[in-house]
Amino acid sequence: MASPTRAQVLSLYGNLLRASNSFYSYNFREYFVRNTRQRFRAHQSEADSARIKALYEDGLRELNVIRQAAAMNRLYAGPRLVVEKSGTPPSPYEGGKAGEGGGDAS
């Protein structure tokens, strides 16, 4: 596989964010969204194409793991935490559907 295109990387970023957002548990959701953002920002100006390719492949693996993890997390949804805004809870299934439809650029 050649080095991923800009569109492929952006698509992976979007998919990872969506998958991270689909966690039901507040702490996991917050962590994975933050983690995804941080990791993409950290490598924003990466120039080495071999490095980009390796990171992209890592990202694809990570996406699979996060989707599985989030799906299992939604199965056992418990009460919400006291710090969560009760007004706008994220729909527990939004991520799963979006993730399936999105697909990977690979």
Partner: peptide, 25 residues
């Protein structure tokens, strides 16, 4: 409708990372 308390007792035990569960399944 009852909310769960915040967990701030990480020395007693930590929540299992969901990625770990995915690897175990």
């Amino acid at each position: 409708e009852k909310n769960r308390p915040i967990y701030l007792d990480m020395q007693a035990t930590t929540p299992m990372d969901p990625r770990v569960l995915a690897a175990m399944m």
